[in-house]
């Protein structure tokens, strides 16, 4: 699901497994709780270990973008695996400038 750590103003959330509508609210809860307590300048979402994702994952990213912007931080999405590229392209997330 998600492993998190905080260091030097950066919250890194390493997602793993499958992201769908069933699991997304739990991931959201953990990330938002950590960001509320740490108030990071940057939130990094690492997709390196995600094997499956549907549009619920896109909603999750857009929601975290809004959340972190509200507390004055920046979002970064890293390590998107080859098999998820198609849904990322379709989502238009690339135009948000968060993909690294």
């Amino acid at each position: 699901m998600v492993d998190m750590n905080y260091r030097d103003g950066v919250v890194t959330a390493r997602l793993f497994g499958e992201i769908d509508h069933h699991i997304a609210p739990q991931i959201r809860g953990e990330i938002d709780a950590r960001c509320e307590s740490c108030r990071p300048a940057r939130l990094v979402l690492d997709f390196g270990k995600v094997g499956f994702m549907d549009s619920s994952g896109i909603g999750l990213i857009m929601g975290r973008y809004r959340m972190i912007s509200l507390i004055g931080g920046k979002l970064e999405v890293v390590n998107v695996p080859q098999n998820l590229k198609k849904i990322f392209v379709l989502s238009g997330l690339e135009s948000l400038g968060v993909m690294k």
């Binding site: 997304a24 959201r28 549907d54 549009s55 619920s56 896109i58 909603g59 999750l60 857009m62 929601g63 849904i87 379709l90 989502s91």
Partner: peptide, 10 residues
């Protein structure tokens, strides 16, 4: 809630 509105597009 946090839905992208992309299900049919996918």
């Amino acid at each position: 809630d946090e839905r992208a509105g992309l299900g049919f597009a996918v």
